[in-house]
Simulated scan of single mutants.
Amino acid sequence: MNKPILVAVSSQKGGVGKSTLTVLLASYLHFVKGYEVAVVDCDSPQHSLYLEREREIKDCEESEFLRKQVFDVFQKTQKRAYPILMSSLTDALATAQEYLDGNSIPDFLFFDLPGTINNFDVVDILRNVHYVLCPMTADRYALESGISFCNYINNALITSGNSAIRQLSVVWNMVDPRERTELYRIYDEFMAELGINVMETRLPNSVRFRREGSRELKRAIFRSTLIPPDKTQLRGSGVEELVDEFLKITAM
């Protein structure tokens, strides 16, 4: 493949925020940091990101408030929405390559993957990316599943040299503020012993991550593929800090 930075947001556990993390990273990098971004949605059969984009476009057609939000962002940044390409798992790498062959090369190309590792096509995509972000929650089943996933990536793909992966990083997501910080320190130390890198930034469990645009409601929008997260809701979300940490990891 050509030379964008390829990123997979992946885990074998559903419901840990893979698609939400992909949208927030892509939108913040594109609209706020000024990078060129593309996304391949190969999380079949739901294709939640591609359908989210389609829904947002339809909502904009029916809501003057949303149209103005998108127009204001374009006026300020001179950046149109980044492409979201729908693909099957089998064709995901070919879909990405076809896009790169026919367009200017983005800085980052994200793959939104289904919650499984027991699939040859998923493993093949992971083998070809440069960075893997694994969102994880402090739930026993999510932890067991996430650690198993990370061990496989480290042992079968990274350590063996059978991939292009430069780093795998766990992202603590949906962190309940009532949970003891000491608990996460113990988890971090345990994963460090296994050779699993954990990012310092933790994303809280907050309703703002589900605050999308609405054709009926005139409200601030946090999660969108057409505009960046609303500034008034960024504080305490961890998104700015996560992006800055991600850029340090990728040396961008």
Rank of each mutant, 00 (worst) to 15 (best):
T159I: 03
R180F: 03
R140H: 14
S214Y: 13
A142F: 12
L183C: 03
E182F: 01
N173R: 07
I186D: 08
N173T: 09
G161C: 05
T181G: 13
Y187G: 05
R211A: 04
I196T: 04
G161V: 09
Y187H: 09
L168R: 01
R210C: 04
L183Q: 12
V198Y: 04
V207P: 08
M174N: 07
V207E: 14
I153Y: 00
S214A: 12
I165L: 00
V207I: 12
V198I: 10
L203W: 02
M191L: 15
L183T: 10
G195P: 02
S163C: 00
R140W: 11
F190L: 09
N155S: 07
N154A: 07
D176N: 14
Y141L: 15
M174A: 11
A142V: 14
I196L: 08
N197C: 12
R211V: 06
N154W: 07
M191S: 10
V171K: 09
T201D: 06
Y187E: 07
W172C: 05
I165D: 00
P135M: 13
Y141T: 15
D176S: 10
Q167M: 08
N151W: 03
L194Y: 03
F209K: 01
T181C: 07
N151R: 11
N162W: 07
V171R: 05
Y187L: 13
R211I: 03
F190G: 04
N173S: 11
Y184H: 10
C134L: 14
C134S: 15
E179M: 06
R140K: 15
V175G: 00
L194H: 02
R140N: 15
R202L: 08
V207R: 15
F149W: 14
T137E: 15
I186T: 11
R202Y: 04
T137Y: 06
E212K: 02
D188L: 04
R208L: 06
C150F: 03
I147A: 14
G195M: 05
V170G: 01
D188A: 12
E189P: 05
E212L: 06
C150D: 07
G195D: 01
E193P: 08
S163D: 00
N154H: 09
R208Q: 11
L183D: 11
E189F: 08
V175N: 01
M199V: 03
Y152D: 00
L203P: 00
C134N: 15
R180G: 00
R202A: 06
